[in-house]
Design a protein around this nucleic acid. Structure first.
Length: 716
RNA sequence: GCGCGGUUAGCUCAGUUGGUAGAGCAACCCGUUUACACCGGGUAGGUCACAGGUUCGAGUCCUGUAUCGCGCACCA
């Protein structure tokens, strides 16, 4: 028979303050050894009813290329709170961890490392480079995993997946081939975003559009005046475009040819009339450079115009530039302007012109639009499915306003370039021969095919992540846990990742991969400024957990932090929750010292005890409701308040008198109230502060009780 | 240019369906007679950005303005 009998020895640990460092590693090991992170084990050991409803979260796989940052700590805490809450409520709870090879991101990190060592990826054997990055990534993966553990994540490590696991690679390639077979993927020669430094194309989300003040030059072009910010692209400009309704140029007819003096001598120009020209802008006349501008390229296709490359893929001018051949565009620009000025073709320069320039989101290089054969995904039909799913209410967003942003993006899709000219990624299974392109895992019949050397955009595979980790299409987990429940991730991924997961889920299975998208904000520094290495204001979560314990950081990240809103992480706040942990620790000490002979059985409540038990019931009800509504900031704050200002300040203070009473029923009632309040508080706090609550629990639980992590969530 | 969000106490932020404004930290005063000084008790501090409107009643709903932040964007 299980009885409570608190001995002196058991209390001794509570005589000194809570030592997070000593407790955390031991507690995490106990959890992991129990196997309860894995719902199958929990069911086998009868901790969870095998008929219960599943609750699944897929962890956004952290990049295996460095240390965890504060944002990771936030998402791990949020997802762990959801997971622990549902697990205690008896759901068949599964949180699946992962690690991301993070294609371009990691390659950039590794290239920086090479640079420091005086090496370069260019000229390296691709296989050697790949192996080096793989080793680097696998080493970092271990580091990342141990940091995720240290934050208390109760995820099922037995199911962990890496985005380069062989089955992930194979399935990603199969999806590509299927999309090709079904006409969703095509090979196209189109304008792409080219980073001349990284020597790869990039998708729209991998570029940043930055507004800059750039000199705007007006040049004389025959009888016309044209404006440009990019004189260096103008060598091949032999089409001059104006609006068909523009009366100023009514004398010129579409197709008219005239000879004009230009940079390197006379050039034959052709008049093109097209309504794409804005008559209000500048002089209403423009020349075009189809190879290096998407608008111009579309115009060229429409009118079947010549398309000529001016700038090569290293960002240098080509032979068409004549004397400027081989020059870097940055150096060439002023020289070209000088030459035009000497020739009397420069009319004026506007130094106040604001222009939006696309840059590489990693190295800040100017993105050069180039024409290149790449693999594209047709976005429109896929986006349509995603919008329909949201229309039907199959996917909800927290906070709600992100639904609008999601819809906006889905309604304005551009076909997705999934080819990357880097080695670090999943190879695109495609073959070329005599201008023909075929998607196929194995070489097509006939022989003589050349394999595509490009790799996939990392989002092409991570977009399928919920399917990969549940072992789509026939795995046991896929049947049991797909669709998953909540996708919790940063609001910055509302474009990059969330839509792609929705699209792939719907495309491959007909079902959205999750019903709730919870988006957290960025974690900023104490002043609310974005953390960055260059500003030197980066706060490492590991430094804070070292100093104050993991539970304290978790509380500081959750309380007062509403979904979608950025958070200013202040060390004093973390410190404050360390004090709270200590408070809880000392409450336990008091309760233990004063309930030594108490058997734990329910007794009739005397005096204010009834009121306090009632208040506790209301707390349980409120906290449970708020947790169900994803309002963890409110639930956490209520718990903090209850424990400190009701439990400690009132229940304990008043109990001091009651415990001295000579009426045994008054003493018993007070003891029951103390013990019940403590146990309930620990259970409610466990998802937020798993370590300290579990540590206390091991000292107060009955012999036949299991660890707190799998103890039943309190009910009113 | 278009879109989204914020503007509440010195600082960082909460405030669920409209009902006389809250927390933490900081400040000030008092207190170490045993759970905790990693503490307790108390004090002070806000025309809820501004202007209108709806309402018996608005921090909360509507309109507009200002301002900060973020996102998107093929005007050469």
């Amino acid at each position: 028979m299980a009885t409570l009998c608190y001995s002196r020895e058991m209390n001794e640990i509570f005589l000194s303050p809570y030592n997070a460092k000593n407790a955390e590693e031991k507690i995490y090991k106990m959890w992991e050894d129990s196997g309860f992170f894995n719902p199958d084990v929990a069911m086998d050991k009868k901790v969870i009813d095998s008929t219960s409803t599943p609750f699944t979260i897929v962890m956004p796989p952290p990049n295996a290329n460095g240390d965890l940052h504060a944002g990771h700590a936030l998402f791990i805490t949020l997802e762990d709170i959801m997971t622990r809450f549902k697990r205690m409520q008896g759901f068949k709870t599964l949180w699946i961890p992962g690690a991301d090879h993070a294609g371009f991101e990691t390659q950039v990190v590794y290239e920086k490392k090479l640079e420091k060592e005086g090496r370069s990826r260019f000229g390296m054997d691709p296989d050697v480079l790949y192996k080096e990055i793989l080793n680097f990534t696998l080493e970092n993966k271990k580091n990342m995993e141990s940091q995720v553990r240290s934050l208390g994540a109760s995820c099922d490590w037995s199911r962990e997946k890496f985005t380069l696991d062989p089955d992930v690679v194979r399935k990603t390639q199969e999806t590509f081939v299927r999309m090709w077979d079904e006409g969703i993927v095509y090979r196209g020669k189109r304008t792409i975003n080219w980073c001349s430094k990284h020597q790869t194309s990039l998708s729209e989300v991998e570029t940043e559009s930055i507004e800059e003040v750039t000199p705007f030059y007006y040049f004389k072009y025959g009888p016309f005046e044209i404006g440009t910010v990019r004189p260096e692209t103008k060598f091949g400009d032999k089409y001059v475009v104006m609006h068909p309704d523009d009366k100023r140029y009514a004398d010129y007819k579409h197709g008219d040819k005239l000879t004009v003096e230009w940079i390197n001598g006379p050039i034959e120009a052709t008049i093109i009339k097209d309504p794409v020209v804005d008559m209000e802008f500048g002089t209403g006349v423009m020349t075009i450079t189809p190879w290096h501008s998407q608008v111009d390229f579309e115009l060229a296709q429409k009118h079947n115009l010549d398309v000529e490359q001016i700038i090569d893929f290293r960002g240098k001018l080509m032979p068409i530039a004549g004397e400027f051949n081989g020059m870097n565009i940055k150096d060439a620009r002023p020289k070209i302007v000088d030459k035009l000025k000497e020739k009397g073709l420069l009319i004026k320069v506007d130094d106040t012109y604001k222009n939006v320039i696309k840059r590489c989101y990693k190295c800040n290089s100017i993105i050069e639009p180039q024409i290149k054969d790449q693999w594209f995904v047709k976005m429109e039909p896929l986006a349509k499915m995603a919008i329909e799913s949201v229309d039907k209410g199959e996917i909800k967003f927290i906070p709600e306003n992100y639904e609008k942003i999601f819809r906006y993006w889905m309604n304005n899709t551009i076909d997705w370039n999934i080819s990357r000219q880097i080695v670090w990624g999943i190879p695109i299974p495609a073959w070329f021969k005599d201008g023909e392109s075929v998607a196929s895992i194995i070489e097509p019949l006939g022989g003589g095919w050349t394999r595509d050397t490009d790799t996939f955009d990392t989002w092409f595979s991570s977009g399928q992540w919920p399917l990969m980790v549940t072992d789509f299409p026939n795995g046991k987990d896929f049947n049991n846990y797909y669709p998953t429940d909540v996708m919790e991730t940063g609001h910055d991924l509302i474009f990059k990742w969330v839509p792609r997961m929705v699209i792939f889920g719907l495309y491959l299975t007909g079902k959205a991969p999750f019903h709730t998208v919870y988006l957290h904000g960025l974690v900023n520094d104490a002043q609310g400024k974005k953390m960055s290495k260059s500003k030197g204001n980066v706060i490492s979560p590991l430094t804070l957990t070292d100093k104050y314990g993991t539970d304290s950081l978790r509380m500081a990240l959750i309380i007062g932090n509403t979904p979608g809103t950025d958070l200013a992480l202040q060390e004093t706040k973390v410190k404050g929750y360390k004090l709270f942990g200590n408070k809880l620790w000392n409450i336990t000490r008091f309760v233990l010292e004063n309930t030594q002979n108490f058997d734990g059985k329910e007794v009739p409540l005397e005096g204010s005890d009834e009121f306090y038990i009632q208040e506790l019931n209301e707390l349980v009800e409120n906290v449970t409701r708020e947790m169900n509504d994803f309002k963890f900031h409110l639930a956490g704050e209520k718990l903090y308040h209850y424990v400190w200002h009701t439990f400690a300040d009132k229940i304990i203070e008043e109990s001091k008198e009651k415990l001295k009473s000579d009426k045994p029923e008054v003493v018993a009632s007070a003891q029951y109230t103390l013990r019940h309040s403590l146990e309930t508080s620990l259970k409610l706090l466990h998802p937020f502060m798993p370590f300290i609550t579990e540590e206390i629990w091991t000292h107060i639980k009955k012999e036949d009780e299991n660890m707190l992590m799998v103890t039943k969530w309190p009910q009113k």
